[in-house]
Design a protein around this nucleic acid. Structure first.
Length: 134
DNA sequence: GCCAACGTTGGC
DNA sequence: GCCAACGTTGGC
């Protein structure tokens, strides 16, 4: 099972919103690299939910409940969406500052390319971040 | 609010 | 097909 990280501005859609909704369509991605990651997601894959702009931390875990399908909000038809559902909030959010300070996370894609809205997380990186959230 | 990173657009 | 200009994202 693969792991991922998605970003959302909490003022637009927060992890609490996802918990309230039960599941949501993850659409609006308009970047090829991010779209490739969406296409690679499988049902059951787990996803860190990161709050950008405000919060600047991984705040929860979600899971993929529907694999890539055409993004209805994309008039060009080039991009895809998935559906995700909440798994649980992290007891202690893991901040960007903490992640940048952790040597084991030096290769984390979201740190290397900060503008990428959907990025892969290795098994080791996943375990490290979960440990930091305890 | 500013700026760096980076993707996209459009003129040539 | 190249590259300058521009727009967007996101951290600070």
């Amino acid at each position: 099972m693969a792991h991922w990280l998605v970003k959302s501005e909490p003022t637009k859609y927060s992890f609490a919103d996802l918990e309230r909704d039960g599941r949501t369509v993850w659409d609006g991605v308009r970047n090829n690299a991010a779209a490739l990651h969406l296409k690679a997601m499988k049902v059951g894959d787990e996803v860190f939910f990161y709050h950008s702009q405000e919060g600047l931390a991984v705040v929860g875990v979600a899971k993929v409940v529907r694999e890539a399908f055409p993004d209805a909000s994309d008039p060009t038809g080039r991009f895809v969406a998935v559906e995700v559902a909440p798994v649980r909030a992290l007891k202690q959010p893991v901040t960007l500052g903490q992640m940048k300070a952790e040597p084991a996370l030096a290769g984390l894609e979201m740190i290397r390319q900060s503008r990428l809205s959907v990025s892969p997380v290795s098994d080791d990186q996943w375990a490290t971040i979960l440990r930091m959230a305890r």
